[in-house]
Write a protein that binds this DNA or RNA. Structure first.
Lengths: 187, 187, 187, 187
DNA sequence: GATGAATGAGGATTCATTCAT
DNA sequence: CATGAATGAATCCTCATTCAT
């Protein structure tokens, strides 16, 4: 019913963004990909801009927080490892989301309210790293650099797995990549 | 004259892509940003698709190779450091280029010939890392992971500097970020 | 419904060609003359070229053959007379079609397949005249000359009736013009 | 010099009209065909409309009147024969002119003054036929019909010679065609 | 005079949005 | 609710015209 249709619309939009980018998204293509009539899209969203913004918020909501709440009570290296492992898996699974999120933020469709960045995940990491510095486990280096290392590495590696390995992410890959990350940032 | 105009067109396109994304690019805006008439664009390019592809090729040609030829005779850690420093500076300076390159590759404007990715830079790194492994300086880890760490970190950190630090990249930032990277990948 | 709209488009195009020629045809004028939105034209035809070619084929199909099949069993003079009378009436009624057909064939819109001329009517006449020569009724003169006389006279006279007589074609005109034609070609 | 350039422009325009019709005429193509710069056209004509109208007047001036003045003192059948022969030769030689004249008259470029048709030739013929009727040589039939026969036959036959016989017009063709015409209209 | 690069108004085409069914 | 044909504003692109050289 209603929820099913919403999901079909969101999935169609994600898939198409992965193929043709935001510049190539047409309402008619989205409808076709979601197996419904173009007009139906307008029963669920006032216009294209709102559809895209709704998807953006949905993706934001689903990503970081879930991740965070699952692990924020563990010791730092473990917590980082869990975070790394979970994030990597999620990013590989959901690589289309990343493409959408990144393109969306510089498209003419961003509503003002969307601009409050994916700061949440960065903030979680910042807190975690500061705690780690106090406990003498993490290098005493500007947290922004550390965050860039972690997030940049995660994103780039996940895209590589998604594109070149067809999404096959082995435990060994997770461990090896985390080791590299950890050795870089640990004291 | 001719070259000057081409550059004005390319710069205008880059600037606008940074502001509105490929989805928001209009030929009329590009012309306005480049201080010329819309029709003039069509003296230089057959249509929008060809303009964007021409820019893509230009950016590809200018990026990696220059970087590589300047340093590929030095010892590995030094070479990596030079590469890091140069790449970081260039990425910060040219952050708009990255945005364009990334968006372009999943836009409806990519011509078939454009799809041969920016493999060059990855290849240079792969060679360098393999050499490093033989000389026992680099961890014996799948090069794809190492490459993701380096490139992902570089891109994410450069974007952070460009956006949040207004492009002010200190030597200290370069050194600190490289240290993190080096400690991660060195044996 | 669908057929009705196609006809409205075709009629609008014919009328406008009569007024402003193919050089003056605008998609927006055609739409206006056909009482629909410009975009609607593109639901039925990919572009201007295809619209004009479709009209050309339709007109070709409708013209000569119908004429021929109605009469090709009668004796020659009668057949020629019927042909003359029918053709003249049809040409007067459909003078706009002639204008369109003639202009179209040297416009930039002709698709390759359209170039196979209106040979059909000429061929019918050639057969008829050859039969007439065998039966000793028609002068033993190169058929191409006879055909030019018949077709040229028909076209020029019909245009005169259409333009200067507002399409009022009397039986007397038909008979008189046919007599002239018959006296010219009969043995 | 000046005259030479004007002629190059007029010839270029005629040739191109034969190829692409008035709908396909571009000022830039005319200039190219005439081996000069686009801007040069505007030294000789204020704009496209005036160029086309100038050509129209030139062609009108050159056709009928010359013809008429050469022969208007001879007896009727001879005069008609001369007219026929001269007109046919001229029409074959100058078939491109006919195409231009016919297309031009329903293009958006006709200036008001151009609309006073090629009435001159029709008028000359009308006078001639009326004289012939008085002298009992020509059938007592509405002159408009006779004129249509003559002009329609001339045009259609000349186009046939131009297109299918590559402009090779034999004396025999002239005589045979005139005989047909004469037998049709003589008493 | 001659040139042809540059201009921008105007026409072709696309596609977000509506609305009768 | 769902549909998809119809709409027309917005965008791409062309080409008559201008003007600096």
């Amino acid at each position: 019913m209603k929820l099913d249709k919403l999901n079909r619309i969101f999935n169609a939009t994600l898939n198409l963004t992965g193929k043709v980018g935001i510049a190539g998204l047409k309402m008619s293509s989205i409808a076709k990909e979601a197996s419904m009539a173009t007009g139906t899209l307008y029963l669920y969203f006032k216009n294209k801009k709102e559809l895209l913004n709704a998807l953006y918020f949905k993706l934001q909501k689903e990503s970081a927080p879930a991740l965070i709440s699952e692990i924020n009570h563990l010791p730092i290296e473990i917590q980082l490892y869990k975070m790394w492992s979970l994030a990597l898996k999620r990013l590989v699974e959901n690589n289309l989301r990343i493409i959408f999120l990144e393109q969306f933020l510089i498209s003419p469709y961003v509503s003002e309210s969307s601009k409050e960045m994916d700061a949440r995940f960065r903030n979680y990491l910042r807190d975690l790293l500061d705690k780690g510095k106090k406990e003498n486990q993490i290098k005493d280096v500007d947290s922004n650099i550390l965050i860039s290392l972690i997030i940049g590495f995660l994103r780039n590696f996940s895209t590589y797995i998604f594109k070149d390995k067809e999404g096959e992410l082995s435990e060994k890959s997770i461990d090896e990549s985390f080791s590299l990350c950890w050795e870089a940032i640990k004291k």
